[in-house]
Amino acid sequence: MRSTTSHAAGSGAARFRQFLRNYGWAYAFIAVPVLLFLVFTLYPVGWAFVISFQKYGILKSTWVGFDNYTYMFKDDVFWKSMRNTVIFTIGTVPVNILISFGLAFLIFQLKQRAQTFFKAVLYLPTVASGVTLSIVWIAIFDPTPSGMLNRLLIQLGLDPVIWLGQKSTALFSLMLMSWLGSHGSGIILYLAAMGGIPKSLYEAADIDHASGWKKFSRITWPLLKPTTLYLLVTGVITSFQVFISVYLMTQGGPDFATTTIAYLIYQTAFNFNQFGLASAQAFVLAAVIVIVSVLQFKFFSTDIEY
């Protein structure tokens, strides 16, 4: 009996050594990103969750229970920024998806060389930093009559507009920037997906009396649904976190007309030093994003395979 036990223990140790020999390096390589994730993502997130129940001070923090959350839900600015974020998301994500799809559809009809050219050109803005783009757009939205967009309006016989400086047009201006901004990833993904639809499906549809519109609506669009869903989910997530353009172009103004949740979190934390409240806001934003994403998957997911 005893010998059996020691034999088992011995073989256990031997097995572990064998395991290390076989997989040791693999685990070592995995360990690096896992550690980075633990230290720089998971730990701060956990810590922020704790802070959201505190009145946080650098030297001393006090527990305040759900005070930060109740304060937030009573705060007009929070609801305003939530509203702005939702309007911005609804106003940009579907439009951007349609623009990406439209451009991809046009490019897909071209010859290979022309396709490569347009893919590259339209992808470039994706590589440019948001800061650079925002600075260019500040020049475009210049409120004086010599501003680029205003000059165009004057040419058309219209009055110049204070794009970013008035409540009625500020959020719209940020949305306009998003519409005309980067569709590179969307285009590339749609093009790849379009290329992945077997040509024989269209030939079968030709024989099946399908019109051009039928082929589009009954074959192309449904088969691109997985790509559309992906763009929808990632688009909504990115849009809920819109920050750089707000920070650089409007600072959330005028009169909170462009304050988004992400900008509000930044302001609460770094302008008003209320880290506890900012953490609570961040967790509510995260919860909203998770709920919206789950709903999108539930209503739009497909089981397409081809």
């Binding site: 079968a204 497909t302 397409i304």
Partner: peptide
């Protein structure tokens, strides 16, 4: 007025 059966069947997957 023809019908065709394709090598990869070309069934509409969705």
């Amino acid at each position: 007025d023809i019908a065709m059966v394709f090598q990869d069947y070309a069934l509409y997957p969705h």
